[in-house]
Design a protein around this nucleic acid. Structure first.
Lengths: 180, 180
DNA sequence: GTTCACATGTAACAGGTTACATGATTGG
DNA sequence: CCAATCATGTAACCTGTTACATGTGAAC
């Protein structure tokens, strides 16, 4: 999925400025999907406007950059539905934390424990944010998506707390070489 | 993390060709970390060789492209440790499936159910692959990482099966507009 | 008085993917 | 006989990030 589709998807639920889209994408209930920066959102919105998939309303305020509020058009809704119709690609999960864990026996223990604590903290934060979003949001489909996120966060937290000893007690078993 | 680091990380556990690295990254026990294509792996290995982080052994076989087996060097090991030392970035989770779910009430029910079935199938496949890897691999740190993956897959599966009705029974409740 | 939130935008750059090009061997 | 697996590599392209540029108003 690209930033264009993400913008359409967010605007589907209501008008927003580029700035607001960025916030929703990084913190709001759309944060499961893609990370997008201003450098990609603003150009996308311009292109979407040119193509008639969104409509732009400008609110000039002296001394500030003109606020530009975007609204999805009918054509935009169709385009989103079409994009959705292509069938979702496989989920992407990438974890540098887990990558680090593979080499935990070659890093000092404090670093490993720190990384785990950090990971737990990050997941907890995300977890709370999702719980909040879940309570606030009454759209059942969004709740389903948020619930999915919560379930995964829960599982990760439980696993980390129950199994961290596996990589914290380094080097007490002889290492085996390579082999898949 | 970039493909360079991934290559070093894989070679840490044993020598491999570019082709094998690709396989390990997409199917093996490194598949949680990053997706890499040939178009990025081969150039990376060339650069790593130039820089002395890996060593290349060539095995010429007539009528075939020369097999090139790569091994990590001491310098490469240090480089990996250094890269690891920078502290892992936050996990990335992206799901087009969940994105689709948000709009499930605007797509016909068969499509939604199909997408869910598909999602379940994909996760099950991944789940089995991980279970296999877990059984085969005796390196406890890898087992920890694989176990993490298994825990998440389990949670996703349980959630999907227990909550799919939330998005399958469309349009029986009045929709509320926008609002975060 | 400084930092944060608001608000928009560009350009250089990095990192990767896709498609192409080539070809042997093995299994169904 | 066809498809898959093994095996390497390049080049055009796409997408997105980072850093820059600019400025107000509110809160602390």
């Amino acid at each position: 999925m690209n930033v264009r589709t993400l913008c359409l998807g967010i605007l589907w639920f209501g008008d927003a400025t580029g700035y607001e889209i960025k916030k929703l994408a990084s913190e709001g209930r759309f944060s499961h999907f893609i990370e997008a920066s201003f450098g990609s959102i603003y150009p996308s919105l311009n292109r979407l406007t040119e193509e008639g998939l969104v409509a732009r309303r400008e609110i000039a305020e002296p001394g500030k950059p003109t606020r530009k509020i975007y609204a999805i058009t009918e054509k935009g809704r169709s385009a989103l539905m079409e994009a959705l119709g292509e069938g979702p690609k496989q989920d992407v999960f990438k974890s540098e934390f887990l990558f680090l864990c593979l080499y935990a026996d070659h890093v000092d223990r404090a670093t490993v424990s720190g990384a785990i604590d950090n990971q737990i903290a990050q997941i907890s934060t995300g977890h709370e944010r999702l719980l909040e979003a879940h309570a606030k949001c009454e759209h059942s489909h969004s709740q389903f998506a948020i619930g999915y996120g919560i379930a995964l966060h829960d599982a990760a937290l439980t696993y980390l707390e129950g199994n961290r000893h596996m990589i914290e007690q380094c080097a007490d078993a002889p290492r085996l070489s390579a082999a898949e």
